[in-house]
Design a protein around this nucleic acid. Structure first.
Length: 266
DNA sequence: TCATTAACTGAGG
DNA sequence: CCTCAGTTAATGA
């Protein structure tokens, strides 16, 4: 079993990766965040201005690199500009459970603003461009703008709704349905940030990572992917999902997107 | 390194 | 007896 970073490794593990500063303009990075908030909550022009003025430090990370680790005290929240991240926990045997997958425009560790010591790992799945916003900055923004605070509050509640669905998925669905469900959830979230391409979308995870998300081995993940392809439901090739039969796909996944709360409640 | 597949094994319905 | 899934190992991209 390959050892990964984890809570026990804070002082004994390899030296953390030192991220490079990126030259990517941080304006672009805010766009996906604003689009997401607009979709889930609606957002006023004033709030958009607040977000556009947030100071953000942008850095590049390679794939499979820790951003904040279990047990660490976070001082910043991390906004994904590009690439995919995951939150996970690793047990002493070295096995890792992926708890959620995160896409550009999301702030996976927003809760660290109030829960200071991390109770899980946040790491990159693919090479990522990440923007860091100081806790202090966000706290001041919360005080200045209750409506932005409300947006983030709601975002965090949707996050926990996604965890509930994830538990049902891993705990109760057969493996092919688990994979289909994760795929459709990902698709619906990518839709919001305008990253769908016809009947295909990105899912740039290795089969090892897919296994860790679904609670199965990489070999079994491969079998399940093959099965869905042979049944003419979906194809997963080079990090891209192509839907072959939408009706079968939805039926298999047992997907009901209500938990994503993508229409603003007024 | 990652993906693919076969062969074998055992649990459980 | 059948399906699902873990293990091991070989091989290909």
């Amino acid at each position: 079993m390959q050892r990964r970073f984890g809570a026990g490794d804070c002082n004994t593990g390899p030296i953390s990766y030192q991220p490079e500063l990126a030259r990517v303009p941080s304006d672009m990075i805010r766009a996906a965040l604003v689009r997401r908030l607009r979709t889930s909550s609606g957002i006023s022009d004033d709030d958009v201005k607040e977000i556009e003025q947030l100071p953000i430090a942008v850095r590049q990370y390679p794939a499979e690199t820790p951003v904040v680790r279990d047990g660490e005290r976070a001082t910043d929240c991390c906004l994904i500009a590009d690439g995919f991240c995951a939150r996970s926990k690793t047990i002493p045997s070295g096995k890792r459970q992926i708890l959620s997958i995160h896409i550009p425009g999301e702030i996976p560790d927003l809760m660290s603003l109030f829960l200071h010591v991390m109770d899980h790992d946040l790491s990159t799945l693919t090479p990522c461009t990440l923007g860091f916003i100081r806790h202090e900055t966000l706290r001041k923004l919360h005080q200045r703008s209750p409506s932005v605070a409300e947006l983030f509050w709601r975002d965090t509640l949707i996050d926990s709704a996604m965890f509930r669905e994830w538990i049902v998925n891993v705990g109760q669905r057969p493996a092919p349905a688990r994979l289909a469900h994760v795929m459709i959830e990902l698709r619906e979230r990518l839709r919001v940030i305008e990253r769908l391409d016809g009947n295909s979308f990105e899912m740039p995870l290795t089969q090892e990572q897919i296994g860790e998300a679904l609670g199965i081995t990489a070999v079994h993940a491969n079998r399940v992917i093959k099965q869905l392809r042979q049944e003419g439901i979906v194809e997963l090739h080079r990090g891209r999902v192509t839907v072959l039969d939408e009706r079968k796909f939805l039926e298999l996944a047992d997907f009901d997107g209500r938990y994503l709360h993508q229409s603003p409640t007024l």
